[in-house]
Nucleic acid binder design. Structure first.
Lengths: 213, 213
DNA sequence: TCATCTTCTGACGGCGCGTCAGATACGCTC
DNA sequence: GAGCGTATCTGACGCGCCGTCAGAAGATGA
């Protein structure tokens, strides 16, 4: 099968030339920037186009509406998430398991910090029931969750974790911990937990829940 | 100290008469309804007032903006959350600990189902950095988190949990699990986990992480 | 009934939305 | 490097929501 470069399409489905691709990218970057600065609720198409020095009409040449742009950003984020599985390969049963758990937490934290505004919106829209965002979200986490599920199954086989827990649910719960605690960092800090304590605690929680060790 | 009924104020700070309180309540109910039906991003003040058969100008007599109404809803939700601590009283160290964990999960699920649209917005705004919503959110979870922290500390004293985990962080992580997994239920179901499996798994995860048993 | 205070709303200027028709810039051919 | 066809951009418009204010309508009570 020939390796085909993903062709990018405009709002009307036409194939984009190179000039257009640049514009589209700039629009997406501006969207991400504004999202980080002031939140989804204040995101306006006029502002996005103002940011790149063009007009609202241009925006609609690339995206049918704001959601389409947000979805595109979410899909970009997904691409950056996949490499994180490497931290889960072969499980954490060996002697360096806890160390590897810590490294995974670090890697996820970096990923999160790079994309947090976008991920927040993706999750919001997914939770509100939008099918496209639901899809994007599942797809993004699937690799991680599958790898974690395997770890749980192994631990159950070895009798380190009870059979009463559902591997997929457990894995999802671990993602929940890490996703949720990161935006919550400042608040946690105010309660007297250092960043290191946060990192280490999350690592231990994941390690224990996934390996039973 | 005399027991004072909380006086409710309009947007300009004036004390509301009984007729006004009714209107305010109806506005809040309509807001919550629309929030559940179509999400924050599509929430419009005109729609809220249309819903109660009044005019936009009326809305502004009670709330300076939509956020103020959302915050009021969030605070209502907070009031319903406090009673959940009873499920954590005295810890889960006794023989019926796992059963109590399950009951807690059930109670939280009910609470969540009653308020999910509002809680989602509260969390979004909190994560986006809005101080009022941050405050509301911390306050809401504080009782639960404190109670859970105590459980962790006890388990650490008894040598059932490692000293390397931070009690407050651990407690927050448990809230994260439960808050996150609930809106995710359908998706989890599609992966073959029954509602019971979900409930039981979450119960076991909390039980193990908080008691070390 | 009338005076007064409370609550409601019609109407308005301002602004973002989403669309179109026409303008502009690009790149290709000769 | 002139001219042409296509790709890309935008000004301008009608529509609907925002937030405000002045005055209308309704309640209260003397």
């Amino acid at each position: 099968m020939a390796r085909t470069k993903k062709t990018i399409l405009g709002a009307d489905g036409r194939v984009l030339g190179s000039r257009a691709e640049v514009t589209r990218t700039r629009l997406l970057e501006a969207t991400a920037k504004l999202l980080g600065e002031s939140g989804v609720l204040d995101l306006k198409i006029v502002d996005i186009t103002r940011e790149v020095g063009s007009s609202p009409a241009t925006f609609y040449q690339y995206f049918v509406d704001v959601d389409a742009a947000l979805l595109a950003l979410a899909e970009q984020a997904t691409r950056d998430e996949s490499p994180l599985v490497s931290h889960l390969d072969n499980g954490w049963d060996a002697a360096d398991g806890l160390v590897r758990a810590g490294e995974f937490v670090d890697a996820y934290t970096t990923f999160w910090d790079d994309h947090n505004a976008v991920l927040r919106v993706r999750n919001l829209k997914a939770e509100e029931g939008d099918p496209a965002f639901r899809e994007a979200r599942s797809k993004a986490n699937l690799l991680l969750i599958q790898a974690m599920s395997k770890m749980v199954e192994q631990a159950q086989r070895d009798g380190r974790l009870p059979g009463s827990i559902h591997p997929f649910v457990t894995a999802t719960a671990m993602i929940a911990i890490i996703e949720r605690l990161l935006p919550y960092r400042n608040e946690i800090a105010r309660r007297g937990a250092t960043p290191t304590a946060l990192r280490d605690t999350v690592a231990v929680l994941l390690y224990r829940s996934l390996t039973g060790l």
